[in-house]
């Protein structure tokens, strides 16, 4: 069994004044893929924000341990240092994370350098190639608004992978994409995670994605992880009524 990279222990967190996360516990080993499936309002995005230490999410109880070190207990500067370099994020909407009118090369260089690393064109080209972008040089010289949503999302993935993080957080990374692109992006993400031994913490409402990618999944409802287990087991023999309902609601090809 691989070493645990991220451990979440009895986590309670609130957003503003409202308690959102109630007693969340799970582990992700190095290179493991954990998928959190839930509907809107279940608190799944808040969980990611708690790990990132973002926004108004306040950890009120429990702990988030990254390699045995507590993230909420860490000084802000140290936490920020980890973000990007060791813990990457792929946002739901890549358009919001790039400046639409600046060339990508400059933006990516800036991001990499702000993490205290040297920018190398070769690494960037390689990373772009790895996520299935043909002609990476041309993409690097273009501006985000000239590219499609699918391409932007691939670039966001490449940018997040560039510092070779050990843990990648994905917030509904494919829900803004067209079906065909989403399928391809999911497959690329999966093979990248496997080939680089990057752990993934994915948040999604899509059970299909969870099934295709993850080793273990957690079903989230009203701020609680109501069921966790290996993906196969949970999907084949769900213990909770809610999980069964969720499974039944997914359209299938007859």
């Amino acid at each position: 069994m691989a070493k645990e990279l991220l451990k979440i222990r009895n986590l309670y967190a609130s957003y503003g004044e409202e308690p959102v996360l109630l007693d969340i516990s799970f582990d992700i080993p190095e290179g493991g893929i954990f998928c959190i499936v839930g509907e809107s309002g279940s608190g799944k995005s808040t969980l990611l924000k708690a790990v990132l230490g973002l926004d108004r999410v306040l950890v009120t109880g429990g702990d988030i341990l990254y390699e045995g070190r507590s993230l909420p207990g860490m000084p802000d500067r140290e936490h920020r240092k980890l973000l990007g370099r060791e813990i990457g994020l792929i946002p739901q909407n890549p358009a919001g994370s790039f400046n639409p009118t600046r060339r990508l090369r400059a933006q990516i260089r800036e991001t990499v350098e702000s993490q205290g690393m040297a920018y190398s064109e070769k690494a960037a080209v390689e990373a772009f190639g790895a996520v299935g972008l043909t002609n990476p040089e041309k993409v690097l010289s273009s501006r985000p608004y000239e590219l499609s949503g699918g391409m932007n999302q691939r670039i966001a993935i490449a940018a997040a992978l560039l510092p070779e993080p050990r843990l990648l957080l994905c917030d509904e990374a494919t829900s803004a994409l067209d079906v065909v692109t989403a399928g391809a992006v999911v497959d690329e993400l999966f093979s990248l995670s496997r080939s680089r031994n990057t752990a993934l913490l994915m948040v999604t409402h899509h059970l299909g994605i969870a099934k295709r990618m993850s080793d273990r999944i957690g079903i989230m409802k009203d701020g609680q992880l109501i069921e966790t287990g290996s993906t196969e087991e949970v999907l084949a023999r769900p213990r909770e009524e809610y999980t069964r309902r969720l499974l039944a609601a997914v359209p299938r090809l007859s």
Binding site: V179, G183, K211
Partner: peptide
Amino acid sequence: ILGQPENEYTELLLKSLILL
């Protein structure tokens, strides 16, 4: 359409589906 698609694009759409 789902069983015997004739068009390439339809096939691609079907193939891209992430099903349970």
